[in-house]
Design a protein around this nucleic acid. Structure first.
Length: 551
RNA sequence: GCGCCCGUAGCUCAGCAGGACAGAGCAGCGGACUUCUAAUCCGCGGGUCGCAGGUUCGAAUCCUGCCGGGCGCGCCA
């Protein structure tokens, strides 16, 4: 059962307010809503309808507010008052708060979660080329994408995550040559390469070469390079894919599917879309290449689909790939890309529209770059040069929880300065521990009481202290936060929320003893703790972070 | 030059379907553990919300211009 089976307090207040406006003025107003005031003295919820509509009624805002209040009927409110320039402040009754708390506990792990409905959405993210290990920059994509899938799923979207392995382009050939050269070197032999300068140099190239030698010994040395290279490429690519998948698994990043670019070549899907574009007149030959008339569809200029040498540019397989997504039944797909691909969107979009797909089929979320800094100085990172820091190394240093939390704490739309020195040193100060600690503290209370928070469901009637009220209202805000984050495709509202929630709890904990003699009071506070623990666990879970029982 | 994004406290960042005195963490200073975990809590100091206009009863939030920074503008991916 989803929590929305019973409407949230916010909606109840807003509903009563709408009713009062209708009663007082005999009309419907748009955008009548309530919000949480910053200050507790301004009540639990507040509205600015009177301020916003005073002009319509040609009366002062305060007068309008008083008029609306006079028509308001809401037994779940303890008090309603007109304040300031014309705000209406609402204060909920303890009884209403208690009922809502019971609803939260009844919903359990489903709290804030909506039943899946609507059109399926496919989110593609990470999609790191299998030419080396994941770097700390890729980690941000992984943390963002995986959390977003979880959040959208919780908000009721039918969403799946997919990883696109670019195992078809010429970077794979380059990887193959890099490994082959290294492999030959293990036997003190030379391997003819097209461009020695362009080879990948990372330490992992040596590892792959050694693994290749372990498996096949000197088999490739005397084979014609034309025969051996494809096999080495396949080996190296598979090696990298395994490595990437292992890192992702470790970081608790899950995908519903992996898609290989190579399959598009093998199935003829690329040829097919290229032919189709030609036939529809959206692709033309010029200067020995085949061009996509993308400028007709909003791109700055036309783009090459098939190069002079007959091979495809990146766009062609990508169009085929996205058309495949379409034919799988998705009506919306979201691609998570690095900011350095910003200019690429219009091109792909143009190709898809040229094929007759709707313009709103593809949505792109750009994740801003991660600038690597060491001791305040920027580090130039290049996978090819091999001087990068891997995601695995970061996980070794700070742990999965701290790493994932750190990545999604700030908006994916802002640049991130990643100072390795600080990241490690800060792992102790990472706010994730602040949030986790609240969870562990609650677990400790239940251990002491020898009770199971999962079976704590009842809320005896009684009043709530200010710290309890603040905590409750924060708890009840959770579904709205999840919904809003999903709608805006943002992850960082969750950490922000969780830290506020943890603050509310720590404050409550400092002021009030939970395990007191008075049975009603004790039970109410235990219920509050159980609810907090529940929301913390769900919230951390949406970020792929553990909620520890002890710390 | 054109396009997209960013500019909030010493640092890292929230807040931006306009609202009541601009928030948090870290860093600095000072307090609180015989009581459910002090990885906590309380207090103090610290801000022309890049700048200038505009819309509005009201702007960090919306609009315009400018300044500063990032990214992109390949028959690379």
């Amino acid at each position: 059962m989803a929590s929305e089976a019973r409407s949230g307090l916010e909606e109840r207040v807003a509903g009563a307010l709408r009713e009062a406006v209708r009663e007082a003025y005999g009309l419907e107003l748009n955008g009548v809503h309530v919000e949480r005031p910053n200050e507790a003295v301004h009540g639990d919820f507040a509205t600015n309808v009177a301020l916003a509509n005073a002009r319509v009624f040609r009366r002062s805002p305060r007068e309008v507010a008083r008029n609306i209040v006079a028509s308001l009927e809401a037994p779940f409110l303890e008090s309603v008052e007109v304040a300031g320039p014309g705000f209406i402040n609402f204060r909920l009754s303890s009884r209403a708060l208690g009922e809502e708390l019971e609803a939260l506990l009844a919903a359990g792990e489903m709290y804030g979660r909506r039943e899946a409905s609507g059109e399926p959405v496919l989110l593609e993210y990470v999609s790191v080329n299998p030419t080396g290990p994941m770097t700390v920059a890729h980690g941000r994509h992984a943390a963002y994408g995986d959390s977003l899938v979880r959040i959208m799923g919780a908000a009721g979207r039918r969403v799946g995550g997919e990883y696109y392995f670019n195992d078809g382009g010429n970077q794979i050939r380059l990887l193959g040559e890099s490994v082959a050269a290294r492999y030959a070197k293990l036997f003190d032999r030379e391997w003819p390469v097209s461009d020695p300068e362009a080879l990948y140099r990372g330490e992992y190239i040596r590892e792959i070469a050694e693994d290749l030698k372990d498996r096949d010994v000197d088999r490739y040395l005397n084979a014609a390079p034309g025969e051996a290279l494809p096999e080495i490429m396949a080996f190296a690519t598979a090696w990298c894919m395994d490595d990437i998948e292992a890192t992702l698994a470790r970081a608790r990043v899950r995908f519903d599917g992996y898609f290989n670019e190579k399959s598009l070549y093998e199935s003829g899907a690329i040829e097919e879309v290229v032919e189709e574009l030609k036939e529809s007149g959206h692709a033309y030959e010029s200067e020995g290449a085949l061009w996509l008339a993308s400028s007709k569809f909003g791109d700055d200029k036309d783009r090459v689909l098939v190069k002079k040498d007959g091979s495809y540019t990146y766009v062609a397989p990508d169009i085929a790939y996205h058309r495949d997504k379409w034919s799988r039944g998705y009506e919306t797909v979201v691609d998570v890309w690095g900011a350095d691909h910003a200019g690429y969107g219009p091109r792909l979009q143009a190709g898809l529209v040229a094929l007759g797909l709707p313009e709103d089929f593809l949505d792109v979320e750009l994740v801003r770059l991660v600038k690597l800094v060491r001791g305040g100085e920027q580090v130039k990172v290049s996978k090819r040069a091999g001087n990068f820091v891997t995601f695995d190394e970061l996980l070794d240093e700070v742990g999965e929880d701290a790493a994932r939390y750190f990545y999604v704490r700030s908006s994916h739309r802002t640049e991130m300065n990643f100072d390795l020195a600080v990241a490690v040193q800060q792992s102790d100060e990472n706010p994730v521990y602040y949030v986790q600690y609240a969870h562990a503290r609650i677990a400790s209370i239940f251990r002491r009481a020898d009770l199971d928070p999962e079976t704590t469901k009842e809320v005896p009637p009684g009043d709530f202290a200010p710290e309890e009220r603040a905590l409750l209202l924060e708890l009840f805000d959770f579904p709205r936060v999840v919904k809003g984050a999903a709608a805006r495709r943002e992850v960082h509202p969750l950490p922000t929320y969780l830290e506020t929630l943890a603050t509310r709890f720590h404050r409550f904990y400092t002021v009030h003893q939970v395990l007191v003699e008075d049975e009603g009071l004790r039970q109410r506070r235990l219920a509050l703790c159980a609810a907090t623990k529940n929301v913390l666990r769900i919230g951390l879970g949406l970020l792929g972070v553990n909620a520890p029982e002890r710390m």
